[in-house]
Structures are given as structure tokens and as C-alpha cells.
Design a protein around this nucleic acid. Sequence first.
DNA 1: GTCTATATCTCGATAGAC
DNA 2: GTCTATCGAGATATAGAC
Lengths: 211, 211
Amino acid sequence: MPDASTPRSDYSDTERQIFDAALQVFAREGRHGARMQAIADAADINKAMLHYYFRDKKTLYEEVFAHTVRRFMASFGESLEEAPTFEETLRVFIDGYVEFVRSDEAAMRLMVQENLAGGSLLGKHLREATKSGEAPPQILVDTIAAASEAGEIRSVDPHHTVLSVISTCLFFFVARPTVEIMHPDAAGDWGAFVEVRKEHLFDLIYHGLAP
Amino acid sequence: MPDASTPRSDYSDTERQIFDAALQVFAREGRHGARMQAIADAADINKAMLHYYFRDKKTLYEEVFAHTVRRFMASFGESLEEAPTFEETLRVFIDGYVEFVRSDEAAMRLMVQENLAGGSLLGKHLREATKSGEAPPQILVDTIAAASEAGEIRSVDPHHTVLSVISTCLFFFVARPTVEIMHPDAAGDWGAFVEVRKEHLFDLIYHGLAP
DNA sequence: GTCTATATCTCGATAGAC
DNA sequence: GTCTATCGAGATATAGAC
């Protein structure tokens, strides 16, 4: 049983190759739209090998999805750092969380795919991924609630606020092809666009919460 | 050729039945994951009829997608109303746009699906849908830019601001299954949750833009 | 226009040689 | 562990009766 904090540590090189390829294809095409042949091609491996290492498509998908949920949940906690002011905490979180998504856009796409498809696997895996220790998203909610009580920010609903922060950090990745069509500069240099966007997001949300 | 402002007006009842069913299934399962049998079942017709009215799966998908893009683009303009203050304009837009998405979540899912899959159809249809008259999203950008210059709001990048507004209005629908798991109240009464959320979004963004 | 039956093909999965 | 060949289910698409 793989450890949540060190995902895929018990995987061989070949298994990891398959895993990474499967994540990419499932993320683009969805659970049912993905083709085993496409995964094999992306992993630069024979199609029969997929079934040797992972029994079947369903098993492969659930394995990939389970790891992805864990990583996604953990990223909340990892992006939150102790900081003297709420301003600094917010800035660091936005930076850390956006960087996490940028470093693994496929993981984000897979999460969204599952949501679009109805999220039947979400309940089980989300509960499992959050019950170890405090739930990471809850930490963020608590942070906002504390800042609100301390008078550092306006009195706001912390749950809705966290959802808004996550929305703005994630959505431009979700709709990246559309953004690249509509935003002249995003198409040219995505990395630079992301940097500008982080600044904008902090600015908008910080002012939105200021007393 | 169907008119953008009155989509599907040239469709027979049967065609519309198929169209609506196809939208639902494509939105959930994706372009390739969708099954023609599932669409036929949802439309409560025979599978052979799908091929009688729409030649094949690819044609059906592109037809549905083209209409969806048009509707989505048009919704920007429809949600924008002349209002004496920017505050009122923003409130009306958030309300209108969220209501549009709520009224047709499948359309939103289809757009996101296409983005996740790489958006190969987006360029063509997006250009086509925006070139008739001014591009609707541009109107919103101009509105923000004007308010910014008039001193009604802070000096902000209008493109990034519009993207942020859209992000917050859309994302909680995209991730609805996750939201329903994490938000206690969303699971119980989604409609009430959406109402509360509209208030929160206006509040957050309005303060975020206030001088 | 509608339905049944069926042709054709794609895909997931396995068998078996090496 | 790896590969080729292939089976069989299930999917798209069509033929043809009504």
C-alpha cells in the first residue's frame, strides 16, 4: 500500500512510466475516453505491458486517481506557511498553490474530469485523503476565520472565501486553451502570464478582504 | 445556417430532442467517451435515428459544440445591462451570468471538456462566434477599463479582472461534486447555496476593486 | 420517418512464444 | 518481463423492411 506522503515510491521505473503516461491521457480524454493504446504509446511501451503491471483499465484509472487526490489535498497544506501577517500568508499560499498546479497540470485536469463525470469516486477518495490528520483545506478555512476574528480582514464567510481563492488559482489552468486564444500575452509566454496573474490575484483578493 | 441569437430555431422537435440529449451525454462523458446508445436512450429514440438526423458522431458533436460556444459567448452580452453605477453593473452581471450557467450546466461542462481535451475546436468556433459584432467578452473588458479610468474603481488590468470574475462565477459549477462534499450547505440545497454565493462574489470582487 | 437486423470496426484483454 | 497475434465484447454505422 503506497504511502500518501511519498506517492509511487514503491513503483519500478516501468510502472512509473506507465503511471505518468496514464495520468496524461486520462486527464485529457477522461476515464472512458482514454484509450489503452494511447497510454501505451505515451509510455513508449507495449500495450500488453499495461495489463501485466496494472490488471485492467479500471484498476489503472483508480490507482492514478487515488494518488492524484492525495497529492492535491496535500498541496493545500504544503502551500500554507507560517507568516507574521495574513497578507504574507495569502501571498505565499497563492504562489505555492499556483506553482503546484503549474508543475502538474495533468493532475488538475484529472480532478476536473472526475468532477465533470459526476464525481462518483470523489467521495471515497476525498474522505480517505483528508481523514489522516486535519483536512488540509480546513486549515485554510481556519486561517481565514482567525484573520477575520482578529480584525486583520473584513468579516467574511471563510468557506466561500476559500472557494473563491481556489477558483481563481485553478480556473485559468482549466480553461487554458480559451485563455490563450483570448489573452494575447498568455499565448506567447505562458510562464510570464502566470507570474503576472499571481500578482493580480493577490492584489484583487487582498483588497477584497481588507477591512 | 442557424442564427446565433435563436439557436436551433430551424430544428424539428425530434432534432432538438437529440440535440439536448447529446449535449448532456457529451458534457458528462466527453467527445470520445460518450456513447451513441446513451444519447439515443436520453433522447428516448432509436439509435438509428441519430444517424438519420445527424450523419455521424463527429457531426453531431460539432453541431452541439458550435451552438454551445455561440450561446456561451452571447451570454456575456446578455448578462451586461446598462446601469448608472459600476457597482450595479457588476451585481447585475454576476447575477445574470451565474443564472445562465445554472440554467444550463451541461453547456458549461461541454466547454470545459473541450478545454481539457486541448481545445482543438475552440479556435475556429470562438473566432466565428465573436466576429459577428463586437466580441461580447470584450464589452466586459471595456466596461471595467472605463470604470477604472473614470475613477469608479482602482486601476487594474481589465483583462485579468474579467478572467477573475468569470473564474469565480464558473468554477464552483465545474467542481460541483467536490463543493457538495466539502460544503455542508451546498449538498442540502444547491439553489440556496448559489444565491449565497452570488452575494459573496459580488462582495469580494466589489471590495477588491474599490478605490 | 421509424425500427430491426446486421455489417464493420475499434478497443480492452489474454494466450502463448521467447 | 517483453512481444505478437488474436479473441471477443461492444461500439459506430448502414441496409432494408415497413
